[in-house]
């Protein structure tokens, strides 16, 4: 589903945030991305959502090299990638229902279909009763789950989460992780950036470790150097 081949990302004026990173994440596979602060976790996730472009190497999503796709194609790539942010990125002047409905409205689904799918997604994250609430009236954990419902509502094949449990208590964090595991079980590829080593150990999934932009564990080390550009 996701393949990185010798991917480097250089920020002008900073240097390489990622260098020669290679790994694979299969369909329906779940993995954790870990590493110290500044190791390049967010950078790696951003490459998959085409928020930034690689300086070198190939980023394949569903066998398409998305490193050099045109601007016009980007929205359609992003529709296949549900993203969950630590700061939720919800619209605070819209109800929970409208927030979760947004990806479906963008895809141009009919009213009835939107209603059906939004309620299914809210049910999944246990917030069906809150559909008419404004996000500001919800707790941090509840807001995070609204973000998750929005990310999965159009059933994307890939789910990315950047520190999804950053400031939640351990119990809530565990609940959120179990939710991700459920999506993985229905065939979604899930990649979660996290610091929380205890929690990662509990989940027993594959772990990709970054250290100063290099993948020190979980990646592929036998890539032919310079074979891909």
């Amino acid at each position: 589903m996701i393949e990185f081949h010798n991917v480097s990302k250089r920020y002008p004026g900073f240097g390489d945030a990622l260098s020669q990173v290679s790994f694979k994440l299969a369909s329906g596979e779940m993995a954790f991305l870990t590493g110290h602060s500044g190791a390049g976790k967010s950078t790696l996730l951003k490459l998959i959502a085409v928020l930034i472009r690689p300086t070198n190497g190939q980023v394949l999503v569903n066998n398409e090299n998305i490193g050099h796709i045109s601007r016009r194609r980007i929205p359609y790539v992003r529709r296949n990638v549900g993203i969950i942010f630590q700061d939720h990125k919800l619209l605070f002047d819209r109800t929970v229902f409208d927030n979760v409905a947004l990806p479906l409205v963008i895809s141009g689904l009919s009213h009835r279909e939107i209603g059906r799918r939004v309620r299914a997604a809210l049910d999944k994250v246990g917030l069906l009763s809150k559909e008419k609430s404004l996000p500001i009236t919800l707790s941090g954990g509840q807001q995070q789950r609204v973000g998750i419902a929005r990310a999965v509502v159009n059933k994307p094949p890939i789910l990315l989460a950047d520190e999804p449990t950053g400031n939640l208590d351990p119990e809530l964090s565990r609940e959120i992780m179990d939710l991700f595991a459920q999506f993985q079980q229905v065939g979604t590829s899930v990649l979660i950036a996290s610091h929380d080593l205890d929690l990662i150990a509990q989940m027993g999934s594959k772990v990709l470790t970054l250290n100063e932009g290099r993948m020190t564990a979980g990646g592929m080390h036998n890539e032919p150097q310079g074979g891909f550009r």
Binding site: A49, L51, R72, P75, Y76, V77, R78, R79, I83, K89, L90, L91, L102, P103, I106, S107, R150
Partner: peptide, 16 residues
């Protein structure tokens, strides 16, 4: 601005 950013994040086209 925030709304536009979020819409772009989740795959909204320029036309949308």
């Amino acid at each position: 601005r925030d709304e536009i950013e979020i819409i772009k994040l989740i795959g909204g086209t320029d036309a949308f």
